[in-house]
Design a protein around this nucleic acid. Structure first.
Ligand SMILES: [Zn+2]
Ligand SMILES: [Zn+2]
Ligand SMILES: [Zn+2]
Ligand SMILES: [Zn+2]
Lengths: 145, 145
DNA sequence: CTTGGTCAGGGGTCAG
DNA sequence: CTGACCCCTGACCAA
């Protein structure tokens, strides 16, 4: 069993730990450079820092970054990466215990951001479960993304 | 080396293995919008959808589309693009998932999914056993009469 | 339970 | 308008 498969199993067994990307709100694939982000924002941040790329905003520098338009303005995307706390030298943490991101020190801006992100997601889930019929998981396709 | 360059090299070395464009039969440059097509048909389809262009056939709507005359009738060219299955899915850039080539309507979707998963694991195991195997002299040769 | 590399494929460019 | 060429993106993998 590969690491990525193990990762999938881990996330499936711990759905409550799934957090959306702090930059673009797509489902995150874990913590990258200190922040929960998707694969895209992880790679984008890595490329930008590694090759020392610099971008210019065609608009007023206030572009909203979400899953659909995250590739439209590189300047504002990278600005948001930095704003939410992504750092190349982020200290690698050990295996987090359950809910560790809730009990971590609230002095950390990053953990506050994680908390807000989680609460936002919970609210969205709650609202969705009210307006839509609950969907039972299909055992046959439970490992599908 | 870019993908198209690599493909050209591959095509040069393996001319009989090239997959042709499903629309015009020119050598394809890979899979585009779900179908193996050439660069021309890829760009034509993209432009048509993006700018919502519509065309009219000067003939009876049955023009044959091949490499030589593909630019002669835009209406029939686009019609063939759609017919062979080209479509712009949800806007998603980056590498497609290995499961993205499954046909959504197929009743064997789940078994196809399992097959891809199995093949992936087999490939990984095979690769691991090759790179990890110690290079020993073949003992079978010596014991043979 | 992350990091860095890989590369298929989306999409822009610009002579022709 | 066309399409050869090239950059950018992000899913997957090895480690
Ligand atoms: Zn993201
Ligand atoms: Zn911007
Ligand atoms: Zn073609
Ligand atoms: Zn026609």
């Amino acid at each position: 069993m590969s690491w990525s498969q193990l990762h999938e199993v881990y996330w499936y067994d711990n759905p409550e730990k799934t957090i959306d990307c702090a930059v673009c709100n797509a489902p995150s694939s874990g913590r990258h450079y200190g922040v929960f982000t998707c694969e895209g924002c992880k790679c984008f941040f890595n490329r930008t820092v590694r090759y020392k790329l610099s971008y210019t905003c065609e608009s007023s520098g206030n572009c909203r970054i979400d899953r659909q338009n995250r590739t439209q303005c590189q300047h504002c995307r990278f600005e948001k990466c930095v704003k939410v706390g992504m750092r190349r030298d982020a200290i690698r943490r050990g295996r987090p215990t359950k809910y560790s991101y809730l009990s971590r020190s609230s002095k950390s801006f990053t953990s506050q951001y994680d908390l807000i992100t989680l609460l936002t997601q919970l609210e969205r889930s709650a609202r969705a479960s009210i307006t839509a019929a609950p969907k039972l998981p299909d055992p046959g396709v439970q490992s599908m993304p």
